[in-house]
């Protein structure tokens, strides 16, 4: 396993100002290949804190995290460099404004690789590859990142991490603030990247439709604890999601309402419009 959490807790000493939500006794394993994992839970449930333990940005208060063979324990050891771990696990923050700073998109994407001692020429090549990977064309490389639209900025910030060629890609709410079209484009992009490179992609999100439709595995956080780690199918078969402040995907809730109203013999667990329509027609046709 590429990342392995063992009884990880994180909290602040009482009285001090808290930027991060606490997490409590988290154990979990993440492979380096082939999984699309969603982390869900209401605001303040500890999703971001969990994500920032995955590339040693935060150090656990107790327990340990194994990241590609390095063990992270309490407190940063000043003699050890943790920087190389960020090349294995790429973390994209929610707001691209947090990372864009160069005057051209190209330079900005090159910043990451060059921090890892990759030559300028090689970094430029990586930037070119990354920008295409996120669905923008090469003309963007010469543009000023601050003049781009919100969706484009987001793509450039993802390219900045993809250029590091991480084994695992973690994205904090990559679809927030995008309109519906932007949202589905972004998700198609991740699926494409995942298919091409077989990287594990982890996405923090509130959008259950996306989780149901695109993800293989879902981790549910609630008040700092990991309370579910299973397939979306299994999660959405459960009855009490409202207690966790989670919604059901629209397809499920609408079909469930129809099923109740007409007492139909219908399989409500459909992931998209077409499948739902076929199943509905089958059920009413009888």
């Amino acid at each position: 396993m590429a990342i392995h959490f063992q009884h990880v807790s994180y909290q602040y000493p009482s009285g001090s100002y808290q930027f991060y939500q606490a997490i409590n006794d988290i154990s979990l394993s993440i492979p380096s290949q082939g999984e699309m994992i969603a982390i869900v839970g209401q605001t303040g449930s500890g999703k971001s804190t969990l994500a920032q333990h995955m590339n040693a940005l935060l150090f656990p208060s107790s327990g340990s995290v194994d990241i590609f063979g390095s063990t992270i324990r309490q407190k940063r050891d000043k003699k050890i460099s943790y920087n190389h771990l960020r090349k294995h696990v790429g973390l994209v923050f929610q707001f691209p404004e947090y990372q864009l700073f160069e005057e051209t998109v190209q330079k900005d994407i090159m910043f990451g690789p060059m921090n890892f001692k990759i030559s300028a020429a090689d970094a430029a090549e990586l930037a070119q590859k990354a920008i295409v990977q996120v669905g923008l064309d090469e003309t963007y490389l010469k543009r000023n990142p601050f003049n781009l639209s919100g969706g484009e900025k987001k793509r450039v910030s993802i390219a900045g991490i993809l250029a590091l060629d991480p084994d695992i890609l973690v994205l904090d709410e990559p679809t927030s603030g995008l309109d519906p079209k932007g949202k589905s484009q972004m998700m198609e992009l991740f699926t494409a990247i995942q298919k091409q490179t077989d990287k594990t992609i982890i996405i923090i999100t509130h959008d259950m439709d996306l989780v149901y439709r695109y993800m293989d595995r879902v981790i549910v956080m609630h008040e700092g604890r990991l309370i579910r780690d299973e397939s979306p199918d299994r999660l959405f078969h459960r009855k009490n999601l409202a207690e966790l402040h989670l919604d059901y995907p629209e397809t499920i809730s609408v079909l469930a309402a129809i099923k109740a109203q007409f007492s139909l013999d219908i399989d409500i667990y459909q992931k998209d419009m077409d499948a739902a329509l076929v199943e509905l027609r089958r059920a009413v046709g009888k």
Partner: peptide
């Protein structure tokens, strides 16, 4: 470039 909620899309398809 807007997306109707699933229930409306389904209704429209029926």
């Amino acid at each position: 470039h807007l997306e109707l909620p699933f229930s409306l899309k389904l209704a429209a398809a029926l």
